[in-house]
C-alpha cells in the first residue's frame, strides 16, 4: 500500500525532502502571520500551528487531491497541507472580499472546497460528525474518497466524538480521525481532563475502530502510518483513529509565547523544541549524507516570495462592501 517503500533509499530521500518542504512552508507562513499580527490588520483570533507541522505534512501527503478534510480552530496547517489557496487564506485573515470566506470567516473558518478542505470551525468537536457525514454520503454514493477529520485530543472528550466514532464504526465509513495530542486544551493540561491510566487512542479502540498512537513530530512515520490507514479506510475496512503526539510552541491564541503565564514549564517547552520536526528531518538527511541543501534553500526563497505576494495582495484587496452584509445568509435563489 505504501508507494514509496522504506527500503528504497532514493524514494525515501525524496519523500523526506517533500515533507520537509511542506513543513517549512507552513512554518514560514505561520511565522509571517506572527510577525505582522501586531499591526492589527488581521482583526481576528489566530491559532498558530508552529511546532505541529509534521502532522499536517505527513497526513496530507498520504491523501489524494480529491480526498477531503475538515478541521477546528487551529487549522492553518491543515488547510495549507491539503492544498488550500494561500492568497485566499491570508486575504481572509485580513477580512477582505478576496478571502476564502469573502471576509466573513477569518482565521477560524477556513475553507477551500476545490482543494478538498471542506471547512474548519472553532467549536471543539463540531466538525467531527460533519466530516463523518461526508464519509457517509461518499459511502452511499459509492464514491472512491476518504475523509480526514483533524481534531485535538480535547475533542475526544466531547460527546459528538463518541457519537461519530460509534456511527463510523457501525457503518465502516471511509474516514480517518487524526488526533493531534498537544497536551493542552487552551491552558488546561491533559491530566485534569483525561485519566492517566488510559491513553487517548484507546477511547477510539473502544468503539471498535482501528487505533494507533505515534510520534506526531516524525513526519515520515506519520506519512507511512497515514498511507496505510488511508488504504484501509478506502478499501472499505472501516474508520481509523490516529493519535499523533505533538506540542504547540506559541501561545494558545495569538502570535506570541505564553510559557510565562504559568500553565506549563519552560523545561517542558524546551524539551519539545528539541524535538522540532523541521530540524530533525534536516539533521536526519544530513546524517545520511542525503540532504539537498540547495533544494531546500530554493524552496525557502520560493515560499518567501509566495508570502510577500500573498500579504501584499491581501492588503491591496478591497474589504467587502457594507452593502453586501446580508449576502449569503441563505443559499442564492431559494430564499423567498
Amino acid at each position: 500500500m505504501i508507494d514509496l517503500a522504506p527500503s528504497s533509499t532514493s524514494s525515501e530521500t525524496e519523500l523526506s525532502h517533500r515533507l520537509l518542504e511542506s513543513m517549512v512552508r507552513i512554518r514560514m507562513i505561520e511565522e509571517a502571520i506572527a510577525e505582522r499580527y501586531s499591526a492589527q490588520q488581521m482583526r481576528c483570533p489566530v491559532h498558530l500551528s508552529i511546532g505541529q507541522e509534521a502532522a499536517s505534512a505527513g497526513v496530507c501527503a498520504a491523501l489524494r487531491h480529491t480526498d477531503q478534510a475538515m478541521s477546528g480552530h487551529r487549522s492553518h496547517a491543515h488547510y495549507l497541507a491539503k492544498g488550500g489557496n494561500l492568497r485566499a487564506m491570508i486575504a481572509e485573515l485580513y477580512g477582505r472580499e478576496t478571502g476564502c470566506c469573502k471576509g466573513r470567516g477569518g482565521s477560524m473558518h477556513l475553507v477551500d472546497v476545490d482543494a478538498g478542505f471542506v471547512g474548519a470551525v472553532p467549536i471543539v468537536g463540531s466538525t467531527i460528525p460533519i466530516a463523518t457525514g461526508l464519509a457517509f454520503a461518499d459511502r452511499l454514493l459509492r464514491r472512491d474518497r476518504v475523509t480526514v477529520a483533524f481534531l485535538g485530543e480535547a475533542a475526544t472528550e466531547e460527546g459528538v466524538f463518541h457519537e461519530s466514532a460509534n456511527f463510523a464504526s457501525l457503518h465502516q465509513l471511509p474516514i480517518v480521525y487524526v488526533c493531534e495530542n498537544n497536551l493542552y486544551s487552551v491552558y488546561s493540561p491533559l491530566e485534569v481532563r483525561q485519566p492517566a491510566h488510559r491513553e487517548v487512542f484507546e477511547v477510539a479502540a473502544g468503539h471498535g475502530i482501528r487505533s494507533r498512537q505515534i510520534d506526531g513530530n516524525d513526519p515520515l512515520a506519520v506519512y507511512h502510518l497515514m498511507k496505510e490507514s488511508v488504504a484501509y479506510a478506502r478499501s472499505g475496512e472501516g474508520p481509523v483513529f490516529l493519535e499523533l503526539k505533538t506540542y504547540r510552541w506559541r501561545e494558545h491564541c495569538g502570535p506570541g509565547f505564553d510559557n510565562h503565564i504559568g500553565y506549563r514549564t519552560e523545561a517542558e517547552y524546551q524539551a519539545w523544541r528539541e524535538r522540532d520536526a523541521v530540524a530533525s528531518t534536516e539533521r536526519r538527511l544530513r546524517d545520511a549524507g542525503a540532504y539537498d541543501e540547495e533544494r531546500i534553500d530554493r524552496h525557502r526563497e520560493h515560499v518567501e516570495g509566495e508570502i510577500i505576494e500573498a500579504f501584499a495582495a491581501a492588503q491591496r484587496a478591497p474589504f467587502p462592501a457594507g452593502s453586501t452584509l446580508m449576502n449569503h445568509v441563505y443559499s442564492e435563489g431559494s430564499h423567498p
Partner: peptide
C-alpha cells in the same frame, strides 16, 4: 452527532 452527520451528508 447524527444531526452533524446529516450536515456532512448534505455537503456531499
Amino acid at each position: 452527532g447524527m444531526t452533524g452527520v446529516v450536515l456532512g451528508a448534505a455537503l456531499n
